[in-house]
Amino acid sequence: MKTTKKLFAVTAVIMMVIAIIAADHIDAPAVQGGTSDITDFYAFQGEDSNNIAFVANLQGLLSPGATAAATFDENVLIEFNIDTDGDAVEDLVIQAVARDGKMYVFGPDVPNGTGLNSTILSNSLNQLSVDMTPYGQPAIVESANGMMAFAGPRDDPFFMDFAQYGEIIAGNATSFNNPGSDTFAGTNVLSVVVEVPKTMIGGTGTINTWVETKRKQ
């Protein structure tokens, strides 16, 4: 029975038309491998428990040799969306965009509109900029109005035995290995990290949050 179940599982996996890649690395044809490809998104309570930190990672699977040359695309806006009333529509956004070696951060603030199109809230009272941290240098952090910002290359924090999952999908294996092997070990991403006081994003309760990349038209 157990063998039957496993066989069924493997068959089902093979029959799937999807291919798992990773958290969101190279998730879809239009963005994969490009400068707007989001690899991962995290949101968690900061070292200061009055704060929430947001992390957006882009341009995954950078080898150490390729990392120094990797840069944020100035035509790509990174937007953290925050829904404070449970309707999955953004009430607040935090925007990050690169200009001439700096990452500019605007918000949290009310967006000019919701949905697929955005304009930059360059007049927001909540804003700061931070120099990009060069590869191989200590992290450069900028603070203002209780917010903190960082932008630059980091180790990809994602971990998974993607290679073995690929073998399972391909029908070459029936289970994961133990121990597994982290396919993302030794690779880097470009990270934007923004930490804000909870009071700026609703104060209490539960928020819904997601990250978007948007390209200048």
């Binding site: 038309v17 999807i18 291919a19 798992i20 890649i21 990773a22 958290a23 969101d24 998730d27 879809a28 239009a30 963005v31 707007s36 490809d37 989001i38 991962d40 998104f41 790509v76 806006l77 937007e79 965009v97 200009r99 500019y104 697929l116 199109n117 955005s118 304009t119 930059i120 360059s122 994602f158 819904n208 949050t209 997601w210 990250v211 978007e212 990349t213 948007k214 390209r215 200048k216 038209q217």
Partner: peptide, 23 residues
């Protein structure tokens, strides 16, 4: 900082698009 920026990628929970959305 002018101009309109149009969405290309988005993500909430990990692996959702890659696992549950058809090719």
């Amino acid at each position: 900082f002018s101009g309109t920026f149009v969405q290309q990628d988005q993500m909430g929970r990990p692996a959702v698009n890659t696992v549950f959305v058809s090719g």
